[in-house]
């Protein structure tokens, strides 16, 4: 876990400010940005995976049962998955978080 920026002293930084924890941005939860939430009607879903393919945030994740579901930590609610679903299986609904 990286600590918050304001806690860093100059000694805590790597030489040249190199970041050696690949993918550490996972700590930053962009789910907060979301107003709309994708909700899948699994009776319509064919598990085609287009929602996963087109998600700019890699927030539509494959699940064990073969379906895909949003990762609420990162889904920004852009609505691409709902728009691109060929089977109209995904609806964007107001996110009452």
């Amino acid at each position: 876990m990286a600590k918050p920026m304001e806690k860093y002293t100059w000694r805590d930084l790597n030489v040249g400010c190199v970041i050696d924890e690949p993918g550490s941005s996972l700590e930053y939860k962009t789910g907060d940005w979301r107003n709309l939430l994708p909700v899948t009607d699994y009776s319509k879903c064919t598990k085609c995976g287009l929602c996963w393919l087109f998600c700019p945030d890699n927030a539509m994740k494959p699940k064990d049962d073969g379906f895909f579901g949003p990762d609420l930590d990162y889904c920004k609610g852009c609505g691409i998955c709902a728009q691109e679903c060929k089977f109209a299986a995904i609806q964007m609904v107001e996110d009452k978080k």
Partner: peptide, 22 residues
Amino acid sequence: DAEYIASGHRACQGCAEVLALR
């Protein structure tokens, strides 16, 4: 299933540019 851009990036909603890279 390999993702080389981790989630938590700050691209705007619906950014097709970061999608292109992904």
